[in-house]
Design a protein around this nucleic acid. Structure first.
Length: 618
RNA sequence: GGCUCCGUAGCUCAACUGGAUAGAGUACCUGACUACGGAUCAGGAGGUUGAAGGUUCGAACCCUUCCGGAGUCACCA
């Protein structure tokens, strides 16, 4: 695709000239071609500084020779000028028309990348089954989903997956609380969505634990612990704040019960397993609804309950190839110091596996299932170190996909009031948030009354698309690596650089095209005076395949989000600068109608990659 | 303390991975079409890119040191 584009033609022409005229070799994609900055004459700019040293000529000399040769070689270059080491070339109006023709004829195949033949697995979301999804999951889900779409657009086959953390002590806490205090209540009987229902019992558990802990602190037992383990000069209050985990593990009655429940679960105790199945199924119903509301889905689910014992064979394999080693206490380790990391535990001294063991096992299982060439893990940046260690270990083990693993690490989502903390109830719930943004879209639309003439169910669909666009765009436009502040007020903004702004451009075009009824098939090749605003839009569209490639290469959906905004912005300006339906000539009208139809297609495709649907009205 | 990431306009973010005079949005001020949809457009003001050195024709980006913030250094997941 790229190979047929205007920019590539320039790059290739430059390499050919450099080679034949100046005997200097470069690869076409190394030639730096930018859109000319608006303070200078020209359309595209070739940066010639890189050749100065090798050719031992002045930038002016190289530029002059390059410019002349380019003009001879490519008949659509009408002029060129040289500013310092920058060669600006101007493209003919005829060529712009021909470019638009190509774009328009290609329709949805424009910018499609040829298949890379590679299969990529993307893991995202991966929630625990003891509480509902929150704001942090939303960032994860939106990143994972958009990244999957973009990788596909870049020519890969993509398998979307998640690992459901459906077992462990946290899950047992909810189960414990429900069996002690639930009195047979169910999501149906209480009218509470399943995941919220189970989450409620997780909260109850923590309340009960806290009560128990507070009471215990008055006991002689507690005083003795403080005497023995408290640091010099540490207050009792401070000590007990930090002792919480130990209390749960050593002294707590309900802690003990919960741990016993986990052991029973591992022993396949029927009563515990039945309870576990029942409560997890409630949670899954709830998750299913949230995913549906967010318009995402998965191709394959993995469950931790199936994978938590995996990876032990690997340990044998690693030991026999002396990749791993055994400590006297029986624990097994891998030494990653040669790649700048530490020694990492692979198997506990009691023979049970740890997180990384499971991840190795899961990766192997996935490869057996799908034979993927690479994997992307969408996981928060607090696990940066873990994934480095995991990837290095997989490399050492010689796994076939190990050279192509990526941790799409993203920053935490903060609230303007600070960090989200479940204990302090400052967590933003995913379902609440979705509902809120849709409400906001509804009231904005009701205010300007533009949708009053269509059926209510269609209105609701549009409100949903607008609200979700605001939320999704707000979160995806930020570079994943950055820690972000989530201001609920800003997330429902619909003016400026927002999802609805981009939708508005699309809706305007749809409205014009409806009025134009039939795209009159006037031949616009006689349209001579291409406007600046028109040219900008064509340049934007031509940029699409590069943006996709760039976004896929850098694992960064935000570049697609920013691109879509730029296109919409250029369209809005164009819309004010020129008239479309009442254009000066029939040629101009036909040209512009063709142009905006192409713009609307590219807007829709870009936004769909981000998981955002376009409304036809708003 | 070691390692990793981050620091750009009052605020939220860009900057084609080393390219021209660092751009948008928001908030503030001033304007625009008797309309192809005002969820729009134009203008103004707002910057020593955390600081200081260095490399380079050229640095927000690379190197060094320092300052500030976060994460991580569990036989937790």
């Amino acid at each position: 695709m790229i190979e047929s584009g205007l920019v590539y033609q320039l790059q290739r022409a430059v390499t050919e000239i450099l080679e034949t005229n100046l005997n200097h070799q470069v690869q076409p994609n190394e030639v730096l071609v930018n859109v000319t900055s608006k303070n200078f004459e020209g359309d595209y700019t070739i940066v010639i500084f890189p050749y100065v040293k090798a050719l031992r000529m002045s930038p002016a000399d190289i530029g002059e020779r390059l410019g002349k040769a380019l003009q001879e070689k490519l008949d659509y270059i009408v002029s060129f000028n040289l500013v310092k080491g920058f060669l600006n070339v101007e493209i003919s109006d005829k060529e712009w028309q021909s470019q638009l023709n190509t774009i328009f004829k290609a329709k949805d195949t424009f910018g499609k990348h040829t298949s890379t033949g590679k299969k990529v697995m993307v893991e995202f979301s991966s929630p625990n089954t003891n509480k509902p999804l929150h704001l942090g999951h939303i960032r994860n889900i939106l990143l994972g989903w958009s990244m999957s779409q973009i990788l596909e657009e870049a020519g890969n086959e993509v398998v979307k997956t998640q690992i459901v953390n459906d077992r462990g002590i946290a899950v047992c806490k909810s189960m414990m609380a429900w069996s002690n205090y639930g009195n047979g209540e169910t999501p149906t009987s209480s009218g509470i969505k399943g995941d919220h229902f189970v989450g409620k019992y997780y909260v109850i558990f923590n309340q009960k634990l806290k009560e128990e802990y507070t009471n215990w602190q008055q006991s002689a037992d507690a005083k003795a612990v403080f005497e023995e383990k408290g640091k010099e000069g540490q207050s009792e209050v401070d000590f007990f704040n930090h002792y919480k985990n130990d209390y749960f593990n050593i002294h707590s009655t309900i802690g003990k019960e919960t741990k016993e429940m986990l052991i029973k679960w591992e022993d396949n105790d029927k009563g515990v397993k039945d309870l576990w199945h029942k409560m997890n199924s409630w949670v899954y119903e709830g998750f299913e609804q949230t995913y549906k509301d967010l318009e995402v889905h998965f191709d394959k689910l993995y469950y931790e309950s199936d994978t938590y014992l995996l990876g032990k064979e690997v340990v044998e394999q690693g030991l026999s190839s002396s990749l791993f080693y055994k400590e006297p206490d029986g624990s097994i380790w891998v030494d990653l110091e040669d790649v700048g990391l530490d020694k990492k535990l692979i198997l506990r001294s009691d023979g049970t596996s740890v997180y990384i063991t499971q991840d190795i096992g899961t990766a192997q299982m996935r490869h057996a299932d799908f034979k993927m060439d690479s994997m992307v893990y969408v996981v928060g940046n607090e696990q940066d170190y873990h994934f480095k260690a995991l990837f290095e270990t997989l490399k050492k083990l010689g796994e076939p996909y190990a050279s192509d693993l990526f941790h799409l690490s993203y920053g935490m989502v903060d609230l303007p009031t600070g960090k989200m903390k479940s204990r302090e109830g400052t967590v933003v719930d995913a379902d609440d948030l979705v509902k809120e943004v849709i409400d906001e879209a509804r009231s904005a639309a009701k205010e300007n009354g533009s949708l009053d003439d269509i059926p209510v169910n269609e209105q609701e669909e549009i409100f949903k698309r607008i609200g979700l666009a605001a939320l999704k765009y707000f979160m995806i436009k930020i570079n994943p690596k950055k820690r972000m502040t989530f201001d609920p007020k800003e997330s429902v903004d619909m003016q400026g650089q927002t999802g609805p702004y981009i939708q508005n451009a699309y809706v305007r075009i749809a409205s014009i095209l409806r009025k134009a009824s039939s795209l009159e098939k006037v031949d616009y090749s006689t349209y001579k005076s291409i406007e600046e605003a028109e040219k900008n839009l064509i340049i934007d569209i031509l940029d699409y395949p590069y943006i996709i490639l760039d976004s896929a290469k850098n694992y960064d959906p935000s570049s697609v989000a920013n691109y879509a905004y730029n296109v919409a912005k250029d369209f809005h300006r164009f819309y004010h600068d020129v008239r479309i339906l009442t254009a000066e000539t029939d040629e101009a009208k036909a040209f512009r109608l063709t142009l905006i139809e192409s713009v609307s297609a590219i807007l829709e495709r870009s936004m769909n990659l981000l998981g955002i649907q376009m409304p036809s009205r708003m």
